[in-house]
Design a protein around this nucleic acid. Sequence first.
DNA 1: CATGAATGAGGATTCATTCAT
DNA 2: CATGAATGAATCCTCATTCAT
Lengths: 237, 237, 237, 237
Amino acid sequence: MSAARPSSGVARERSRHASGAKAPDKRRLILDAAVRVFARQGFHACRVSDIADEAGVAYGLVYHYFASKDEVLDTLFLERWHVMLELIREVDSQPLPVREKLEAIASFIIDSYRHDPDLMKVIIVEVTRAANSFGNTHIATIREAYDLIGGMITKAQAEGVFKPEIEERFAAMAFYGAIEQLLTGWIFDLLPQGEADFERAKWLVVETVCGGLETRSEAQAGVGRAAPQRGRGEARA
Amino acid sequence: MSAARPSSGVARERSRHASGAKAPDKRRLILDAAVRVFARQGFHACRVSDIADEAGVAYGLVYHYFASKDEVLDTLFLERWHVMLELIREVDSQPLPVREKLEAIASFIIDSYRHDPDLMKVIIVEVTRAANSFGNTHIATIREAYDLIGGMITKAQAEGVFKPEIEERFAAMAFYGAIEQLLTGWIFDLLPQGEADFERAKWLVVETVCGGLETRSEAQAGVGRAAPQRGRGEARA
Amino acid sequence: MSAARPSSGVARERSRHASGAKAPDKRRLILDAAVRVFARQGFHACRVSDIADEAGVAYGLVYHYFASKDEVLDTLFLERWHVMLELIREVDSQPLPVREKLEAIASFIIDSYRHDPDLMKVIIVEVTRAANSFGNTHIATIREAYDLIGGMITKAQAEGVFKPEIEERFAAMAFYGAIEQLLTGWIFDLLPQGEADFERAKWLVVETVCGGLETRSEAQAGVGRAAPQRGRGEARA
Amino acid sequence: MSAARPSSGVARERSRHASGAKAPDKRRLILDAAVRVFARQGFHACRVSDIADEAGVAYGLVYHYFASKDEVLDTLFLERWHVMLELIREVDSQPLPVREKLEAIASFIIDSYRHDPDLMKVIIVEVTRAANSFGNTHIATIREAYDLIGGMITKAQAEGVFKPEIEERFAAMAFYGAIEQLLTGWIFDLLPQGEADFERAKWLVVETVCGGLETRSEAQAGVGRAAPQRGRGEARA
DNA sequence: CATGAATGAGGATTCATTCAT
DNA sequence: CATGAATGAATCCTCATTCAT
């Protein structure tokens, strides 16, 4: 009661009373458990008690920290997406070539999956696609990311680096869609997920999309990095 | 159309008495109603009775033709995806340049959306989510599509048209993901959906992805078609 | 429509138009199928379509011959029970010693089970015990049998063959209960059901109950037949 | 009482706070209500909400304590049957003549009915029918009771008290069947149920069955008690 | 903070029965 | 006679949520 419950906003993991990592932080425990359960069973198919069981707490406690089952998913989405937006904004603010900016974004997303595949699975499968429930709630947030990426592309077009005839919003969607589909491929085991696969994927998505967006002169200039070693049959993580 | 026949019900697609549109074909009626209802409310949020009401039939008739609510969605998915696979196979069998093959695929998908946005919305939004629960029946079907597209890319690489260092499966995913994300953009009203937008989108996705995949020499050859007129403000929504 | 449908009454298997065994007699087909299905799945757990499937007819046809699923069970019960009552009445009308009368009844019931275990299972499990539905409907019929048996016992008591201090109704119930429980034992595989087991069971139930009911003098007179060979471990039918 | 604990729910039979009848013990409340409702309407004809209403609790609470409607019936059966088995085991372990042992068992069953006719009605009427569907969990329990009674008979045969030519399992079934049928007679109002009727019934069933099972010499010894006064017209119903 | 007993609205599914062909 | 498409009432069960302890 003394500590304000941030029902949204980036997680402040510790710092209850500024005392440090004293309590096991049940709220975090529940969120992490929810990720695993949502990833395993899907949001709709799981019960609140499943989350509580996974977290090892009584299920009434979930309602102590979250107003509803929905809010748990909302929180997971917003936590991650805010980090994502922050990253995009930071990248955007720096004086880098588009290709590097886009690569930074692709890297961030792919590394996010590499670091916590369950979380990304939940966000992609349960939120991003959930047109009629969560999707609508978070469209504004998602749109912001597209707008930022779109801005980068517009700028690149103004600089003559990208072809001017491709509309920035469409390009931003295509760029993001390509990345997300790679994650989807990993999630559903359609693509191999070795360490090298992740690295190559970053390069690939940038090379493909930027390659297509760049003007001839730019492409000839050979700004693209060399492809990481193409390795097949690597161990999957 | 090679519609999947459910285990329950009778579903004699053939016209009764060979006369044509004699019988109302309730099964089709239910499927079409389901598309509208799923698109409007989402699969989970709608009740079976909503489908029946929309179709103007009795509650139980849905269960006369389909074993469950899931099977209705399943059927929609399989129906559509079979058409899609057929198209891809046909395209693949013809002696066309990759770019044209990919453009045919992109066109087909985008036209599918243009022709029946509700259906595509359902397929994209609900099925991915359902893939978790529905087991891997659908994954196998989807994988086949990717494999076919991957095959086109491999061939193009062998012919020196596409860069060899990009793995075909990843490229196929990126290609498909770009298209799907455009649809998602339309579905969520993040992109304008005028007639010209659809046409430009076809060109754009091919130009972007192929442009990125093609070897320098190929790109220089200028195989790409000129961009359709970039027109703004035709947004429908 | 020309042939009166006996919704109750002993089955008149053939004799539609007095022509003989011309048609396969679908009604009989359905009744026999119902016995098998009721025995296998239980009355409540089976669907009308299960009966129709077993009979190899469309399920609408069941309603051509019977007003409801209930009536099918009713008919089976009444068919059998009328035969049973007839037997008891006939036995009762003959100038035999009680012991032989009761043995005739026990034999009839046990032979009924031997001849068609499914039918007897259905009648015992689904009707006789079904206190609140069928039971009540048929109590009158069942009571008649008890009364007839009770009458035999009263007569035997008057003749000094049976002890007078045992009330006839109670004795009749006990007698019938012993037999029915043997059937139940067979039905649920608690007792062996070889041919000899059936024969011994007839003797046993009469020997036990009559032995207990008879007066000392009568018992000493040794009216009881010798026990059939006690055989264990016989093959089960 | 060694009540079977269901898999769901919590069921802390122990008194809360060691204070006694503090908590209403909803689980017991539900079971008792179920007995009344099952007896009145029959298992199949009643709804779960009828049980909840009768118990004065919310619908869902039934499912808090029991996994299904079936499990409620199951629990009632097992609770009762365990008490019954315990009684039989105890009787069996004592150095009494068979006749007294069997009389103790008959007394117990008949007193059970006298004490809670609804419960016995449910056990007799519904469980036999359910045995079909419930699988063989119950059959095993029932078999154990028969085996114990059969053991008593075998022992009596070895001691020369009972005729050796009657197989013990058949005799056990007949004995139990006679008792059960008396209960059935009461349940369906075919027999009078005054206090004296119950007492006479105990004597009758033992006298009849034991009388039939005993060897001549034993019967002559006159071990049987005198019949309780034969009184008519005390019928309760 | 934590617990889990209690609530009850909500929805999928079943299946007996009707009836047009 | 036969068929099986069509109907829709009936009911089980789930599970998010509340709240007393």
